[in-house]
């Protein structure tokens, strides 16, 4: 996530000032506000936050998968701004450029088509290969992600797979075209702990093998500590803190991140449940003033209720920029 110019050629995906809002009966829902992040080749960016913080919307909107939203900002990929592309151009990128794995594998595959067919369909949408070639590739992929007897299971329907196998199949599909970016949106949330660990290992293995850049969305700091190089903590559609994994885990600066870390079960590095910060989830309706975390923040000062702190680079962390959107941390670091 370095900002220096020399690194910029390794930057694969560069999102700047992303804003996504929806019209709703209660007013405009600002699901993502001024979010910027970068993703380097072969690296993993973890996006952490509780439910509704805008993790999915901020990633899905850049590949045009969010419908009925107003989107502004920039998302440079391969020298082009994804937000300016027409659907056909974007479609060509979905898959070979940026592939996705979603949260709930049981509902993310079409129940009426065989698993292998669904992988073949993806291959054949982007490459002119014959049906039998695509089938062989699908079998190979299923084998690669650890499906036993892939030449048989390729013809199974999703309901014949277990949850963990379905997520592996989703991963097989996502890596079918050797994507440069893999967005994994809570890929392990629906799975039990041992399967979670296997899936994370599989993703790391894929990254080592193919140099894939990964965005790992999670509400679980345990997952972040396992796999991420850089971390963005989101709250109410905003980036609250951005840092390298080491910096973030060693010295979290934002009160929200501190709360997340405290509420994390220590014994089990894959534990879930980050909901123990007291208070209500924030409203995303436009027009609210101040810091969205202020009502739940134990360290809030009067200014927090009226002004939103900018996401500022903290001087203390030198050339590995550690950013935090909090008046307190910014005051601490003021010279």
């Amino acid at each position: 996530m370095s900002m220096t110019a020399t690194d910029s050629e390794h930057v694969l995906l560069d999102v700047r000032d992303l804003n996504v809002s929806f019209d709703s009966p209660d007013g405009v829902v600002e699901a993502v506000r001024n979010v910027s992040f970068k993703l380097d080749q072969g690296r993993t960016l973890g996006i952490v936050g509780e439910s509704g913080s805008g993790k999915s919307v901020s990633t899905q909107s850049i590949v045009g998968l969010v419908q009925g939203a107003r989107i502004s900002g920039q998302a440079r990929f391969d020298g082009r701004d994804l937000l300016m592309l027409a659907q056909p151009e974007l479609r060509a990128i979905r898959g070979p450029g940026i592939a996705m794995i979603f949260q709930n594998p049981m509902s993310c595959l079409h129940p009426l088509y065989p698993v292998g067919w669904q992988i073949m369909e993806m291959i054949r949408a982007h490459q002119s290969v014959s049906r039998s070639q695509a089938r062989l590739r699908a079998i190979e992929l299923l084998g690669q992600v650890g499906i036993p007897r892939p030449d048989v299971r390729v013809d199974d329907y999703p309901h014949q797979y277990s949850g963990g196998m379905l997520q592996r199949a989703m991963i097989a599909m996502a890596i079918a075209l050797n994507p440069r970016v893999l967005i994994a949106d809570e890929p392990t949330t629906a799975l039990d702990v041992t399967v979670q660990a296997q899936i994370l290992r599989l993703l790391r293995h894929i990254q080592e093998q193919f140099g894939t850049a990964i965005i790992m969305i999670t509400h679980d700091l345990g997952v972040v500590s396992e796999i991420a190089d850089d971390v963005m903590v989101m709250y109410a559609g905003r980036a609250m803190e951005q840092a390298s994994r080491e910096a973030l885990l060693r010295r979290p600066r934002h009160p929200y991140t501190q709360g997340l870390l405290r509420s994390r079960p220590q014994a089990d590095s894959l534990g879930r449940a980050l909901t123990s910060i007291p208070g209500q989830p924030p409203s995303l309706i436009a027009g609210a003033r101040g810091c969205p975390f202020q009502p739940r923040c134990t360290q809030a000062i009067s200014r927090c209720a009226t002004d939103m702190p900018p996401l500022a680079v903290l001087a203390a962390d030198g050339n590995d920029p550690h950013r935090s959107a909090c008046w307190l941390t910014q005051a601490e670091d003021a010279p």
Partner: peptide, 14 residues
């Protein structure tokens, strides 16, 4: 449904 989002994410035509 979620699997429609998957279909779109695969880069299929509308």
């Amino acid at each position: 449904e979620d699997y429609i989002r998957t279909a779109r994410a695969k880069g299929l035509s509308e």
